[in-house]
Computed example of a mutant assay.
Amino acid sequence: MASSSPTRAVQARPRNRWRGPLLAGFCFGLGYGVTQRLLALQLPGLVQLRQGFDVREFPGTSLESLRLRFGNDTQEIRGDLEVLELERQAKQRQQERREEERKQAEAEQRRQAEQRAEEERRDRESEASAFQPQPGPDSGAEPSEPPEPAATEPPAPALPPPSP
């Protein structure tokens, strides 16, 4: 029998761990219920839910005053980024086309200037050969080689315009 008594002393009564959370939950529930009742009764002395100051007009320009000033026309709002990007790309393509047309016009002008310079050179050569005395058949001298044309300097290359 002596061996059975120490085992009973070792077995302690298990502690109830659920009492603390149960008490906390009960307190929260009671507080929620009381608050709900007070709000439902709308007691002005206990609970004041209205604004404690006068409502004033928002500072700045109102939409009505803007409409009176600039008209009531409905205009497109410029906030759509896709439309803005498409417009920017269209402007860029148009500017590139203008640049290409300008370059082509410059190339055409250079080509025409080169043609005019070549025609003038040929005219000068033909005029020079027309005024050169030709030896007659009775002179006995052999015809000499035609004089070499004077070397003309080519026109200076056109520099591209500075990029912005």
Results as ranks from 00 to 15, higher is better:
57 E>I: 15
41 L>D: 05
9 A>I: 09
72 N>Q: 11
62 S>Y: 02
104 Q>I: 02
50 R>Q: 12
84 L>C: 00
29 G>C: 09
40 A>H: 07
100 E>I: 06
46 L>C: 06
128 A>I: 00
47 V>Y: 02
29 G>K: 03
52 G>C: 10
14 P>H: 06
94 Q>P: 00
12 A>K: 08
81 L>A: 10
19 R>L: 13
77 I>Y: 07
49 L>Y: 01
13 R>K: 14
100 E>Y: 12
43 L>I: 15
18 W>D: 03
57 E>W: 08
112 Q>N: 14
25 G>N: 06
84 L>Y: 00
102 R>Q: 10
117 A>N: 05
146 P>M: 02
150 A>T: 05
123 D>M: 11
73 D>E: 12
161 P>T: 15
51 Q>H: 11
31 G>C: 07
103 K>I: 08
33 G>C: 14
35 T>V: 10
8 R>I: 08
49 L>G: 03
67 R>A: 10
22 L>P: 00
58 F>P: 00
116 R>I: 08
151 A>F: 13
100 E>L: 14
67 R>P: 01
164 P>A: 11
65 S>K: 11
26 F>W: 08
90 A>E: 06
116 R>S: 14
53 F>M: 13
70 F>Q: 09
119 E>P: 00
145 E>I: 09
153 E>I: 13
116 R>N: 15
154 P>A: 05
101 E>P: 00
143 P>F: 00
135 P>Q: 01
161 P>R: 15
110 R>S: 05
13 R>D: 02
159 L>Q: 14
1 M>T: 13
20 G>A: 10
163 S>T: 12
11 Q>Y: 10
96 E>C: 02
164 P>D: 05
44 P>H: 03
71 G>A: 11
158 A>N: 05
81 L>K: 13
25 G>I: 01
116 R>C: 04
47 V>W: 02
59 P>C: 06
10 V>Q: 15
138 D>Q: 13
41 L>Q: 10
44 P>D: 09
66 L>H: 07
10 V>A: 15
10 V>W: 12
85 E>R: 13
110 R>E: 08
106 E>D: 14
124 R>V: 01
25 G>A: 13
125 E>D: 12
37 R>F: 08
137 P>C: 03
119 E>I: 05
